[in-house]
Amino acid sequence: MTKPVLRVQDLAVRFKSFSGGLLQRKERWIRAVDGISFELHSGETLGIVGESGSGKSTLARAILGLLKPSRGRVMWLGEDLTTLDEEAMRQRRKELQIVFQDPVASLNPRMTAGDIIAEPLWTFYPNMARLQVEERTRGMMKMVGLLPNQINRYPHEFSGGQCQRIGIARSLVLNPRLVICDEPVSALDVSIQAQIINLLKDLQKKLGIALIFIAHDLSVVRHISDRVMVMYMGQAMEVSQKTDLYLRPLHPYTNALMKSVAIPDPKLARQARQDSWLTGDMPSPYMRPKGCIFHDRCPYRVKRCEADVPALRRMESGDWVACHRAEDLDLSIQGASTGSLG
């Protein structure tokens, strides 16, 4: 197998926060990302899924150098990005791009679509001829399914889905080798979500880029990912090949996430409801449970889970899981392969 382009090793980010009044201020640390490791190859897509507060966006920002990690390394083509100075990092950003969640808010309302897409070109290639920039911009618009004659329109003249296409065109204009999509479809209507997912999938196939696709919903990443990482409170619970994960999740939390996906079928939905077991919220980041961080919500917990932290370990299948009971639990999802539930 070829060498991975991105190798994240034991990456951790923590945030400082204060509690108490002005005079009795106490420092507290939140572990937003807590020791994440994974590898990514060219042309591969890693889906990252977790509830809000699980640290998925923080992880994305730390990889891109937008946040300083407190520990760990981000190896990009053999070079540790966390040790680079600002200018060197800026140069690497040509290769590392991001698409944000809110398609409208992430575009400058006072710039035209063409200017928004061309801005990275001006920044990195200030000497590029104007005609060449425009040609490239029109080419990008066509590639993401916008009409090149919309080049002089402003963001408010586009719908949410079209704005996200502009955001994607901007992220691709410099020919990056890694694009991180941070919940790119969460703010879009269901029918438009599918358009954007299909578009990203096509573009990746065409351009051979490495892709990290972040979502809070397992059903959304299924179509686009090769591998999926499930995060909970800053840690990876499971990293599995897509084909394995959706048939037989290894971690109870993955199983819970799958069961909370809504099914547009009244009978199946009512049936699935009876099977779902996840209750309550994620614990406060200040009160991380001892042992396995998921144990207080887990119906499969045993004594050991309350004391020992399960390490992320490799199973025979090559998938990774952080659960003491991974071998003896069968969390297979019935019907995932046959076409119907139950």
Partner: peptide, 17 residues
């Protein structure tokens, strides 16, 4: 257009153009 986990995976998601 609803991505469904209880269905076999198709290549592309159906989208309304």
């Amino acid at each position: 257009s609803v991505p469904r986990l209880d269905r076999v995976l198709d290549d592309d998601l159906h989208a309304i153009p």
